[in-house]
């Protein structure tokens, strides 16, 4: 299922003195099965975009096409439930939305709301708890007796339990320690591959964008200012810096090396291993001696 944004404009509080233009002429596509990272400075419009991806917001101009269904200003879409079932959003600090008596009930809440039977919802909760890295025994606990990191995992399981085709992640690892961060991102990536999900990741972490994303969309002041693969975009560090964004550590190191040595590596490297290999190639083929 593709999602297309076509010349989307969004004004908050349109027609009031508090009107504010949040998105302006935004067009891009999230093709089925791709991993797309959206990056941009605070206030660049990333969160507003997210809310368009499952019709929580309707554009004030232009349209959003979600798997063939059109959401636009002039069209009053009736059955949005179908869209929301297919596009699951993990909001920032999703653990703040936990509310049920037990972890199991909390995970079951979403799917049951979309008409899944109690049994089926329970099966899904049991299957997912392990997937998000928690022991079965937490199912019977109150979510409020868990640590912050565990609560985050429960909240994520709640979104996964709806079995969406598109998974939208808004800073899913904020506040987690390095191991937790890696575990959660690796889990999302494994699901993405295994189930052929489309994944949208909103992040401040250029490392995550470089490592996981197929495509990147850079937002600035409510518009898309750059688009391309991580390798393409990270080979334009000056342009990124002009939007208040940095490059991953590996790219930064590569820049420093190139500056000092006057040599140029064959391509921008996205991982430490790749960088070490490229450097050794450069050394062996006549950079040194």
């Amino acid at each position: 299922m593709d999602i297309q944004l076509q010349e989307v404009e969004y004004r908050y509080a349109a027609g009031t003195p508090f009107e504010r233009l949040a998105l302006k002429d935004v067009s891009f596509t999230i093709p089925e099965g791709r991993f797309v990272a959206i990056i941009g400075h605070t206030g660049s419009g990333k969160s507003t975009i997210i809310q368009h991806l499952n019709a929580l917001l309707r554009p004030t101009k232009g349209k959003v096409v979600i798997g063939g269904r059109v959401v636009s200003a002039d069209k009053k879409e009736k059955n949005l439930k179908e869209i929301r079932k297919k596009v699951g959003i993990v909001f920032q600090f999703p653990e703040h939305q936990l509310f049920e008596e037990t972890v199991e009930k909390d995970i079951m809440y979403g799917p049951m709301n979309f008409g899944v039977s109690e049994e089926e919802a329970r099966d899904r909760a049991r299957g997912l708890i392990e997937k998000v890295g928690l022991p079965d025994s937490v199912l019977e606990k109150s979510p409020f007796d868990l640590s912050g990191g565990q609560m985050r995992r429960v909240a994520i399981a709640g979104v996964l339990a709806m079995e969406p085709d598109v998974l939208v992640l808004d800073e899913p690892t904020a506040g987690l320690d390095p191991r937790g961060r890696k575990e959660i991102m690796d889990m999302f990536y494994a699901l993405h591959k295994e189930k052929g999900l489309s994944t949208v990741l909103v992040t401040h972490s250029m490392e995550d964008a470089a490592f996981y994303a197929d495509d990147m969309v850079v937002m600035h002041k409510g518009s898309v200012c750059m688009q391309g693969t991580p390798r393409e975009l990270f080979s334009r560090p000056e342009e990124l810096a002009s939007y208040g964004l940095s490059v991953p550590e590996v790219i930064r190191f590569q820049q420093k090396f190139e500056e000092l040595s006057g040599m140029k590596l064959a391509r921008p490297c996205l991982t430490i291993e790749e960088l070490a290999e490229e450097l050794s190639r450069l050394r062996d083929w006549g950079g040194g001696s």
Partner: peptide, 14 residues
């Protein structure tokens, strides 16, 4: 990062 990269470079014989 610099420590991780230093290790990867040593593995490449640097």
């Amino acid at each position: 990062f610099p420590i991780k990269l230093g290790e990867a470079l040593r593995r490449q014989g640097f």
